[in-house]
Design a protein around this nucleic acid. Sequence first.
DNA 1: ACATTAACAGACAGATCGGTCTATCTGTCC
DNA 2: GGACAGATAGACCGATCTGTCTGTTAATGT
Lengths: 188, 188
Amino acid sequence: MPTTTAGPAQRLLDAAARLFDREGIRAVGIDRILATAGVARASLYQHYGSKDALVTAYLERADRNDRSRYRQSVRGLDDDPLGRIRAAFDLAAAAARRRGYRGCLYLNAATEFPGPASPVAAVVAEHRARQRTVFREALVQLGHPDPDETTARIQLVYDGGLAGSKAERSSEPIERAAGLAIAMATSS
Amino acid sequence: MPTTTAGPAQRLLDAAARLFDREGIRAVGIDRILATAGVARASLYQHYGSKDALVTAYLERADRNDRSRYRQSVRGLDDDPLGRIRAAFDLAAAAARRRGYRGCLYLNAATEFPGPASPVAAVVAEHRARQRTVFREALVQLGHPDPDETTARIQLVYDGGLAGSKAERSSEPIERAAGLAIAMATSS
DNA sequence: ACATTAACAGACAGATCGGTCTATCTGTCC
DNA sequence: GGACAGATAGACCGATCTGTCTGTTAATGT
């Protein structure tokens, strides 16, 4: 059995991710996704039930992928907390260097689907909480005197870096944010 | 002649701003705007020609309003550059304290209308350039040794503050950003 | 060989989208 | 009073939206 081609559910998610990332969620209709994925209309509703459900599935998979990429890039850095912080920013910087970078995928989704009750709000909050945990654990391991405040500051420059890189279409802001974050983490 | 009620053009802009700010641009259709403004369909196309044109008019008016609010809040601060920086952040913090705050209006618009060719991209870029000028002039007046890099850093934390306040639905991030910006501006 | 299942194609429904049009009404200026 | 400009209401257009439905085809397991 040579690799079976990816099933419809997978292909739908792949297509949705590509289109959502490039053009935004509301701007992309079901038909575009179906055509891109080469999947029948009925299959989408069979597997996901609605576009909204597909959207949250897309966000959740993105979060899973981000987490796995991060885990892979910090392999062997258990004793290098600063390296882990740097790795988190490096991943963001790599994303920002890609053509057509549109900034933080989660904040973008929150922009298109406002309201705390929205299912996307939960995914976004979870993503950010995990992100904070990464920073905080590194700071604690570094013996930083004020890990809470510094975690908040690092997330601040992280957010600003992504927003700036999006607006200026340059990786410079997120790289500058990385430098500031490292400085914050190592200062007194 | 007692104040004539605002004309259709004005009412349309008011209604569009209210709805766009709360729900996003793509999420709001023409009909909702017309109903909210109490304006006839033809009047919208008479005055603006298209929804896209209304959107850019909305952005441009927001920018004008922001600028005027800033100018008013720095009246008398010609010799207090630090006060001007603080004023800029205070305005943002006041906005972040309002219920249903959705973050930077311009970045949100850029999210919904990606593409450097989009007419909103120009308005966003202009807004950000003017913002940088405010910071930079204050830093120069302060005699800061590296106004360029510091301007970039202040905009970084400004962006991060707005993004964080949006995501966390709290004014805390933008207030933290204000503190960092002041520190950056006053440090050697 | 046959039943079951999953995916397929595509028609269809109802709503809404942005945008155009006609026709009526209201006020103002001459 | 009569022309005119601007605003009104609302029908209408084609396109597109999400979602449902019918029917067919292909693969699977027993």
